[in-house]
């Protein structure tokens, strides 16, 4: 199951995920994540207002939408990194509202970040080891007696080496993560997420800032996650990539889910075209920062 063995031409698409017609909030046969009435406002601005959405298990789902559509905020809400004003959501049948981010991660829902969060002054290997769950030596008192955790640590290291080899980062295992290139850091972050054997992997713009030479390998890794039985939800702007690997696409605009469907049909949905063409692209610099730029606007008004 190494990346080299994966056919590069045509990934196998999973179909028949939904029940009935594809529409925003459509029911899935086997949803892994269900969100209901999740709403988040910043000041007066509604960033996310999702009525109902289900993420199908065992598939690759893409979350797309123009800038400022609330995709990253929605990610943050689902993973406990931000708190919604209202709403409930559940993962594998367990309610997640008010569950802190670290517990969400322990349940098997692991995320990555848009701006890569590799731990710069830790070695690549330490980054990997940090990803492993239930470590005895992470307890303050037990950490003082190495014999209690040595064996487990060695096992974790072995597993880390295996995953690093798959991501072609094994030669770098003793380097600081800070010395890796942007694309390698994305790879490391994904590899680190795998250390905890997650059931759902949420990737926030895995391709952003990645050198084109690494793009294919990243795509293969994502496809591999599915092949290994994991569910993937990712945010992406690159439509080619979405079409290439996603089994299901959810489109957000202005905080709401406006369309759902398989990649080919959803791209032709008038609501999607409208969302993309109708969106103003001048708010590109910060998604939730809109409330903070009043002074700048005043200044620009002055000049006109």
């Amino acid at each position: 199951m190494s990346s080299d063995a994966t056919p590069r031409s045509k990934p196998v698409k999973t179909t028949g995920l939904h029940v009935g017609d594809a529409a925003p909030g459509v029911k899935k046969h086997d949803p892994i994540l269900i969100a209901d009435g999740v709403k988040r406002t910043f000041g007066g601005l509604t960033a996310v207002d999702v009525e109902h959405v289900e993420i199908p298990r065992g598939a690759i789902t893409a979350l797309i939408g123009p800038n400022g559509a609330g995709k990253t905020t929605f990610f943050n809400l689902l993973t406990g990194f931000d708190k919604p004003d209202t709403g409930t959501w559940s993962f594998d049948g367990r309610a997640l509202a008010h569950v802190p981010a670290y517990r969400v991660a322990r349940m098997g829902l692991i995320r990555t970040f848009q701006l890569t969060k590799s731990l710069a002054l830790l070695s690549v290997m330490d980054n990997m080891k940090l990803g492993a769950k239930d470590q005895v030596g992470e307890n303050l008192f037990r950490s003082l007696i190495p014999s209690l955790w040595r064996k487990q640590d060695a096992a974790i290291e072995e597993k880390a080496l295996e995953i690093l080899a798959r991501f072609k980062l094994d030669a770098k295992k003793d380097d600081y993560a800070a010395s890796l290139s942007g694309g390698q850091r994305k790879l490391l972050e994904m590899a680190r997420a795998l250390m905890s054997d997650p059931t759902l992997v949420m990737l926030d713009e895995p391709m952003a800032g990645v050198n084109p030479a690494l793009t294919q390998s990243l795509l293969d890794h994502i496809l591999n996650l599915k092949a290994q039985g994991m569910t993937v939800l990712f945010v992406e702007h690159d439509m080619h990539m979405v079409r290439h690997i996603a089994d299901w696409v959810i489109v957000m605009a202005e905080g709401k889910v406006v369309a759902e469907g398989d990649p080919h049909t959803v791209m032709e949905d008038p609501a999607v075209i409208d969302a993309y063409l109708g969106a103003h692209h001048d708010t590109d610099l910060g998604s939730t920062d809109t409330g903070h730029v009043e002074a700048l606007k005043e200044l620009l008004d002055d000049e006109q």
Partner: peptide, 28 residues
């Protein structure tokens, strides 16, 4: 002893980026 243990690894991870460590299931 602490800083060469997994506990120390988590601690140093928090110094680098606490959100990343949180996303890995540690109670930061």
């Amino acid at each position: 002893l602490l800083m060469r243990s997994p506990w120390g690894r988590v601690i140093k991870g928090i110094r680098e980026d606490e959100d990343a460590v949180r996303s890995l299931g540690k109670n930061v």
